[in-house]
Amino acid sequence: MTSSPLVIIGAGQSGLAAAKAAELAGLRALVLESGDRPAGSWPSYYDSLTLFSPARYSSFPGTPFPGDPDRYPTRDEVVAYLESYAATLDTEIRLGTRVTAVEQAAQGFIVRTESGDTIHAAAVIAATGSFGRPYVPAIHGRERFGGEVRHVAEYRDPKPYAGKRVVVVGAGNSAVQIAYELAELAHVTLAVRRPVQFVPQLRGGRDTHYWLHTLRLDLLPPSVLSRLIKGTQVLDTGSYRAALDSGDISQRPMFTAYDEAGVSWEGGEREPVDAVLFATGYRPHLPYLEPLGALDPNGLPLHQRGISLTHRGLAYLGVEFQRSFSSNTLRGIHRDAHYVVKRLTPCVSDLMGGAN
């Protein structure tokens, strides 16, 4: 058995931010990543994904995105950025190392990996995000439907859907972006619980993220944010709204059931459909914490602002709206990382005898 003052599970944006925060706090950390690249889930997103925030607002402190700061980086640019950032860290990152369980020890935790390794840790940060647990709501008749049903976690590009009738479920940025590119090759309907709410990408000649930063709205706690913003909002330069207004993409209230050939809409209308793509979000993916008893019955972390409510020395990163509007974003994850590392430091000091 090996030991480490701090084990960070996951080497995506959250895990790398945690590693940097640990370095700045003088803590020796070990990062465990199941994939073969220190980029988390980014390599697995759909091919055309671009950030909704400009490069200048999509980077870690002290490490700006290369190139034009006003462009919107692509998926592959984000992957390259994270890999480059990981190379600057003075922290061990073990790739191809999947954590299967975190267990309570007499002091601290035992972290077990798929390869059979065991690591004793004074503290643990769970930073594996949610991509591994896409959410697809249960809808009546799924077993009878003869078409394709997927979450957008499995979507890569529109070519396989050329000429097909596709329903995209969701009203957020990803749902609208995917529906927009599909509409060039397929007949697309956007199925929504509430109509899409568009927000101008530019206000007063500046990107919306300039105002979020300048007015410090990025720092608002979720309780305040929910009173200011109702529902999901989609950033738009005008192209997405025009596609809906023109009918290139139709928008309808969520269908009520599947049938053999398609879906049934409110009011009983049936429509033949070849494929349904769910852009309905993700849930925290933390199966390795189930033996610890740190999760609620739905598998969600029991925490306050990222600090476990069940186990001293356990913290989380990458939970949506964990502490603010910008939690779980490239531009904001560092703030959460410094917060949780600061609160874990006494746990490490206690168990390591003051030596990190």
Rank of each mutant, 00 (worst) to 15 (best):
R331F: 02
T310S: 13
P291E: 11
R216W: 00
F60P: 02
R323F: 06
Y46C: 08
V7D: 05
S84M: 01
R323L: 15
L27S: 05
Y210P: 12
H140Y: 11
S58I: 05
L286P: 10
P222S: 11
R144P: 03
R252L: 03
S326A: 13
A175D: 03
S115Q: 12
P346M: 06
I307N: 05
V167L: 02
L89A: 08
G40D: 07
V78F: 15
G10V: 00
T256P: 00
F255C: 12
W42Y: 14
R56E: 07
G281R: 03
A191L: 10
L219W: 15
M1T: 15
A261C: 09
L185T: 14
T63S: 14
Q251I: 13
Y180S: 09
A101K: 00
Y57V: 14
I333M: 12
D296K: 01
V7P: 04
A121Y: 08
Y210T: 04
A121F: 07
G299Y: 06
D90Y: 01
A127N: 14
S58H: 04
M352P: 01
A355T: 15
I178N: 00
Y282P: 03
A122Y: 04
Q201M: 15
C347P: 00
Y240A: 13
R305I: 08
D90I: 06
R165W: 05
R216I: 00
E181M: 10
K159N: 10
S41F: 14
Y85H: 08
Q197Y: 06
G15T: 09
E266Y: 09
P5Y: 06
L289T: 15
E271N: 14
F278M: 09
Q201A: 15
D274K: 02
L302I: 03
Y81A: 08
R270T: 12
P54F: 01
N328V: 12
G354F: 08
G205N: 11
L344V: 03
S250L: 01
L244K: 00
L351I: 07
R165G: 04
T237L: 06
K342N: 11
P195T: 15
K230H: 14
D350T: 02
G26I: 13
T345P: 02
L309E: 14
Y282C: 15
K230I: 10
I125C: 08
H140Q: 02
A22T: 10
P301A: 04
G10N: 00
G15P: 02
V166K: 12
V196R: 02
P69T: 14
H213E: 11
A138M: 11
L220V: 03
F145C: 09
A29H: 03
E23W: 11
T97F: 12
E92N: 12
L95I: 12
A355L: 10
D157R: 04
P287V: 02
A191K: 09
E266M: 15
G15Y: 08
P61Q: 06
D90V: 02
G204H: 08
D296S: 00
R203A: 14
D68H: 13
L30V: 09
V149D: 06
L295P: 01
V7F: 08
V102H: 06
N328D: 10
G332I: 00
R270N: 11
R227H: 15
Y180K: 11
G67D: 10
T74G: 11
A162D: 10
A175E: 03
A183G: 06
G238S: 13
G318F: 04
G40T: 10
Y135Q: 05
K20V: 05
A186V: 05
G299H: 02
A171F: 01
R71W: 04
F65H: 13
T91A: 08
D36F: 05
P160H: 07
W265G: 08
S239H: 12
